[in-house]
Design a protein around this nucleic acid. Structure first.
Lengths: 204, 204, 204, 204
DNA sequence: CATGAATGAGTATTCATTCAT
DNA sequence: AATGAATGAATACTCATTCAT
């Protein structure tokens, strides 16, 4: 079965290179302007081969999106709940922002949003996936902080949304409308102000 | 000059119907999939006439965006600064949300975002336009509240962003990824919680 | 009848400005790429007015061509038959070339040639007109020179064609294929060589 | 590699049929009025296929021109330099004229000239191509005749232009302005007169 | 199994000409 | 009489998808 395995691995690697080329192209051009022929060429396969793997441009797109956000949601793994609440929240915020800018999350969001009229489920799924995992993790950490008396008991489920909203408003959403935007220099000011507002109400 | 006036009014009405048809079509299909010929047909003019008014599809789109956002920022005009800080902030939040959902703001944002790779200035301008006027008005109102001792003195410029961020996170951004989303039933809960967090720090 | 005369003169001047604008535009862009709307604008009239004067683009073109070569053929008027045959022939050649380059004759030829497939008579007429008058004048002058014993008796009708051909081959025809070509520096060398060849056979 | 060879031959034959259809259509309609879709239909391919072969209408046109003139300049290959100078020159003139009328040289010149304002390089290249090869070959033959003492030593480079000019003036240029023109009956008279004029000066 | 060639159905844009005022 | 707005028909070019080999 060595031959079969070899074939499977070749196939797998073609699939991967198609997806990589597709992601790059979609991120650069958006769905409509991305040309299947270009993607195939960049992936070093024929268009026919591409179509053997993905039955349509739409499916290719959906797959790219799905596999792209697979890696998201792990960014809070390393954060230990030691130190003051303020310190912990700062670390969380930074981890959040870093993940957002390091992976192409904003770019991904853009192309997904663009296809809301034509591929609503892709967009819905992407949003849920991107949001949910992070939200759950954050809520769990907040609950831990409540448990440890670092925060007052409160509706942490809502709270994480609100504090995330404060941080994203100036630091993430603008990037959605402008591909050249990066984290501003005064990011810390924004982060600390958001944290302090939150802690004014919920610090233990 | 009766003739001239007549012509101008006809021209104006054609322009308006083109813009209306264009907005509808762009909202439904996005920029790339919208067909100029369709828009012209829906507006009951020939494509040639459309091109007399707007020299390219891009310009038509930019105009739709510009004119759609034209009315934004006026939504706070009626709000009097009487009552408690909490009451005023609630009214502001509601006005903000209503304007967002009444006009097709979210829909247009989607299309604008889709065009970031190909028409970066349109997107940038749209974002500035959407954000700026509202932000300035809000900041002015916050300053007034500080003056009237309803809020402690603080960086209102940053503050309005933060409170807006809290409110938008659950009530607006999800709609960007899902055209069927409307204001949730528990909107008030979110709004009041955001306000209370903010006031915990900045109430006078 | 002062009013009527005034009207006629206005009309006449509009016609003239249309023709001027048309000539310029046709020379610059050729027939197909010239836009009637542009011509009208350059002539400061409405398209409708233009169409009152010329019933179609084709007719406008034909008129431009016809009226353009009206001025041709007078270029030998000033040349006196004094001096040697060589001197006279040189003056004729120079006059010929100067007229060719001063008026837009080559440009005119280009656009006329371009329309041979679609407007054969326009081209035919233009060629006949451009060629004939000059040819007749030249032949008359050659005959005079024969009479005055400056040239041997010979078929001057054919002879003028031949000597003209020698001079045009390097000095005129290249300009037909390249709008930037002007008279080369060694024009005199070509002219004198052509004359000397001709005189080798027909000098008296 | 049978597959590859098969593909190449199919591709080659398509290319040829596109070029043939294009030449026909361009000759009939000129560049501007020729429609790519028509050419494709006449060549029995889709427009998309046509565009795979030629990336634009301009390139298609340039290729037609280039390949049509490809054979020019070979027409003197068979001519032996035996016989009298007069005989040889006559044969050269005839070969020149025959090539001109056999291939669609004049027709293509017309279209090329039409495109001088919009595609100056195409026109310039075409002129050079048409002129150069023939001129070089003629000059070489003239030099040979000088060597063999059939002609006096002289500036053969200029001389070939001049004798060609004499022959073309009445026998070729008129065809540029009138697609129905063919070689006139008295062509020989013109040719011999041109030769005799030239030999009057340069016969050894 | 893989390919590259082929295509049909579009798309934005232009322009000579007409017509209501 | 003069205008400027309006248009229908055309045109170059593109692209997702299929198919013969």
């Amino acid at each position: 079965m060595g031959l079969e395995q070899y074939r499977r691995s070749v196939k797998e690697s073609k699939r991967a290179s198609i997806l990589a080329a597709a992601q790059e192209n979609f991120l650069k051009n958006g769905f409509s302007r991305a040309a299947v022929a270009d993607i195939a060429r960049e992936a070093d396969v024929s268009t026919a081969t591409l179509y053997k793997h993905f039955s349509s441009k739409e499916e290719l797109f959906a797959t790219v999106v799905r596999e792209s956000y697979g890696e998201l949601g792990e960014e809070f793994g390393d954060i230990t709940t030691t130190g003051t609440a303020r310190e912990i929240l700062y670390k969380l915020a930074r981890a959040y922002l870093q993940a957002q800018f390091e992976h192409q999350v904003v770019g991904l969001m853009r192309i997904v949003i663009a296809e809301v009229p034509t591929a609503p489920e892709v967009a819905r799924n992407a949003y849920n996936y991107i949001t949910m995992r992070r939200h759950e993790q954050l809520t769990r950490i907040f609950d831990l902080m409540v448990e440890r008396k670092m925060l007052k008991p409160h509706n942490t489920n809502l709270g994480t949304y609100l504090i995330a909203g404060m941080i994203k408003e100036k630091l993430i959403w603008p990037a959605l409308f402008d591909a050249t935007v990066t984290l501003p220099d005064n990011a810390d000011e924004v982060i600390y102000e958001a944290i302090d507002i939150y802690l004014a109400r919920y610090a233990a």
